[in-house]
């Protein structure tokens, strides 16, 4: 994919690798909170709205969102090498850790102490994910129709557990309709 001319300069493959390495290492309980923190708040590669734009695309395409985000962001800043660097940075540490945990858990998973530790950790990680959801919703706070669609999608997915494909198609369709009427 040819690099577009106006892209933010100065983000190298090494930046991408280490940026996403940090995300992979700290991403307990889901990576999205850390990805947003690194990309938007710390390194300022994207502003909040551009991050949401890119995330929306990565969400729509198949595959884990954060992996898609690393590939898309790496590709935008440094072509296929950047995509590879960001992907490798994201996956390297978590793969090593998860295999180590697998080996540990096989031996010590029955200990009450370990189980309590994981329960606390999981509850804290949930809090982090809730906070990220709030931050991602924040840029929409003054757009009534967008908020209404987001609320419908939330209801369909969280409460009614509707099939994801149906939610994606219906939600996007509603959004397209709202956008068409608002022109």
């Amino acid at each position: 994919m040819a690099a577009p001319p106006e892209e933010p300069a100065g983000v190298s493959c090494a930046d991408l690798f280490f940026g996403f390495l940090g995300i992979g290492l700290s991403g307990f309980g889901g990576v999205m909170p850390w990805a947003r923190r690194m990309v938007v708040e710390e390194r300022r590669w994207l502003d909040a709205a551009s991050f949401n734009d890119l995330l929306a695309l990565c969400q729509f395409l198949p595959g884990p969102n954060v992996i898609n985000l690393s590939v898309a962001l790496g590709g935008r800043f440094a072509g296929w090498r950047g995509a590879l660097a960001a992907f490798a940075g994201l996956m390297l540490a978590p793969m090593a850790i998860v295999i180590g945990l697998g080996a540990l858990y096989t031996n010590y998973g029955d200990l009450a102490l370990v189980q309590h530790l994981f329960r606390g950790l999981a509850a804290g990680a949930s809090g982090l994910i809730v906070a990220t959801a709030a931050k991602i919703a924040w840029p929409l706070r003054r757009e009534k129709s967008a908020l209404a669609i987001a609320a419908l999608v939330w209801l369909a997915a969280a409460i009614f557990r509707a099939p994801l494909i149906a939610v994606l198609v219906a939600g996007t369709g509603l959004g397209l309709l709202a956008g068409w009427r608002a022109r």
Binding site: A56, A133, A157, T172
Partner: peptide, 12 residues
């Protein structure tokens, strides 16, 4: 059109 869907799904 995609952004509100993302917001809803991440919230869900």
């Amino acid at each position: 059109a995609l952004v509100p869907v993302t917001v809803g799904l991440v919230g869900a």
